[in-house]
Write a protein that binds this DNA or RNA. Structure first.
Lengths: 336, 336
DNA sequence: GTGAAAGCGCTAACAT
DNA sequence: ATGTTAGCGCTTTCAC
């Protein structure tokens, strides 16, 4: 495809009767330029409709003015608010956004979004393998992690939510306000950090109330409707029937609800169910799902702001934990 | 932030004892290079860990290897499958993805994602004002429209779904299979093209069956729960009670369902409701929502492929209409 | 305050 | 088959 001839800095310089250096100065505002000269240059710029070419700027200036976002997979209710926060904040700060999903690809061993085309990146969860993370860290390439803390030898800022404390508060509520003593927990995927913290919060609350955690009632939910459904169906078949099930995320809570319904058990009368995330469906279910609302968009915003601090040479906070909100609805036994 | 000294093409050339041109040839594979030389260069590349700098490549080569996506707002259930399709397809073809939302911004009158940093763009809906669309078109800048046909003077490929035909089929079903004769229609936002085609399909089906469309029963849904709720609530207050309501999208169908419930009307016994899109919630509602499933991810894939054809100088299809699927659930009166 | 000129890292003629 | 070199459009010393 042929590209039309662009208006370059030279055209402007010629038109204004100055050198390209002066035009550059006027455009960037880096050095003082005589008011008259500035006016002439501005006039030429407007007349010609000059737009600086960012690519050339990047080559010369050694920066791209672009932020990269690396995610595992573009999927789930989680994704949209996350991207929204990142895009908006980047844009507000004048950065472009390059996005890349690492799922299913790994062409030639190198990642298409990294130091060569961005000034810094935001890494969601464990979308980047540890060795790549280390490589970038050693190179001192600016990056911020979201929803995943870095390994101890990688000293990079991290923004996430108060997983442990939230789970703890939820379980406190279930025990203290609803009077449940037998609570099952449905884990997220193997190694998922969010899930680990939530489980820890669950266990600490149970312990703090002098309640025993029955290991038979710690199951796999996989942050997935299907897996959770399977686990709970098995429980029911084996005669295990906890009074309450805490699913580590709302998607698995969906599976729990379906499994209970199929087993002829009523929610919340027979079994109470709570989730985590407050996905959109949560409030539309009947009974509506009690859950924890995570400020996903806010996490994104803070992540971008943290990265920009890094880019500007400031020293950002290394760990940011954003607070959540308990959303009490009918599925836990509450009624208005 | 200081950047480490990069390994450049010159370092490789020196190390391999050849010229930079030869290195460039080996890397790009553009011209035949003697096997021995190739081997030497490869060895040097590996040894030094050389990575070509895309920015320099872009400046010199006049292309960015990047596709831009322009959307209005990052919001809704629609967004995630759309982006997913675009990201995957771009990536599969070796393109990076730059994304920009035009909502709420318009810094310095120029758009941050356009001809200066991409080889071509995909424009969703009417996220780009007409004058900008024209400007790019006149410049012959490669672009493809999604879910919106271009104005007649802008000859650009467009990919969308069979809106009219789908609506028609839905209404055919409602009339022929369910026996409804009085059907209301809830429009999308003013000027939204999807909605216009859907309304047309609705009207044609009604006409084809010799049924009158009552203009009092054409209301505003705005592709939004709130607006739809408001409209239907007004209808009920005014004693209008259509036997069936066709909401132009599922979000508005949600508002319809809520309004009817609040008015004490049963779905589908008193009023049947159908939507369009098949958002995730649709199947979880009770009654589950009858709707039209749109192949959103597929539209994205085709849009990217079309753009790439354009970039490669081929002549793509100018209009692609992807078929949909009727999803019949309980809200229209169907029972298994 | 402003101009000249040296890069930034690479591609693509043009030579050889 | 390979080397030489002129850009790509801009930023940034370094002089004047």
């Amino acid at each position: 495809m042929l590209r039309m001839k662009r208006v370059t800095i030279e055209d402007v310089a010629r038109q204004a009767g100055v050198s390209i250096a002066t035009v550059s100065r006027v455009v960037s505002g880096s050095t003082h330029v005589a008011p008259m000269t500035t006016a002439k240059v501005q006039a030429a710029i407007n007349m010609l409709g000059y737009k600086p070419n960012p690519i050339a700027k990047h080559l010369a200036g050694q920066r791209t003015n672009t932020i990269g976002l690396i995610v595992d997979e573009i999927v789930g209710d989680f994704f949209q608010p996350m991207l929204r926060g990142i895009e908006q904040t980047s844009s507000e700060h004048g950065y472009d956004l390059l996005i890349h999903s690492t799922r299913m690809r790994r062409r030639s061993g190198s990642y298409p979004v990294a130091e060569h085309n961005t000034d810094g990146i935001i890494v969601f969860g464990n979308s980047l393998p540890l060795d790549e993370l280390r490589r970038l860290y050693i190179k001192q390439f600016p990056m911020v992690l979201m929803h995943q803390t870095p390994p101890s030898d990688v000293h990079v800022p991290c923004v996430t939510i108060e997983n442990k404390r939230s789970a703890q508060r939820m379980v406190d509520y279930l025990i203290e306000q609803r009077g449940y003593t037998e609570i099952a927990f449905l884990r997220g995927p193997e190694g998922n950090e969010d899930s680990q913290w939530r489980e820890l919060g669950f266990r600490e609350s149970m312990a703090a109330h002098g309640l025993k955690v029955d290991d038979e009632l710690i199951g796999m939910g996989g942050f997935e409707e299907m897996q959770a459904h399977h686990t709970v169906t098995q429980w029911v078949r084996q005669g295990k029937r906890p009074r309450c099930i805490f699913a580590a995320d709302d998607d698995s809570a969906l599976g729990v609800l379906r499994a209970l319904k199929e087993a002829g058990l009523r929610v919340p009368q027979d079994v109470a169910v709570v989730g985590f995330d407050d996905i959109r469906i949560a409030s539309y279910l009947s009974p509506a799902l009690t859950t924890v609302r995570a400020p996903i968009e806010q996490v994104s915003r803070v992540a971008v702001e943290t990265l920009i601090q890094l880019l500007e040479g400031e020293t950002p906070q290394m760990l940011t934990l954003l607070p959540t909100e308990l959303i009490i609805r009918e599925s836990c036994g509450y009624s208005a």
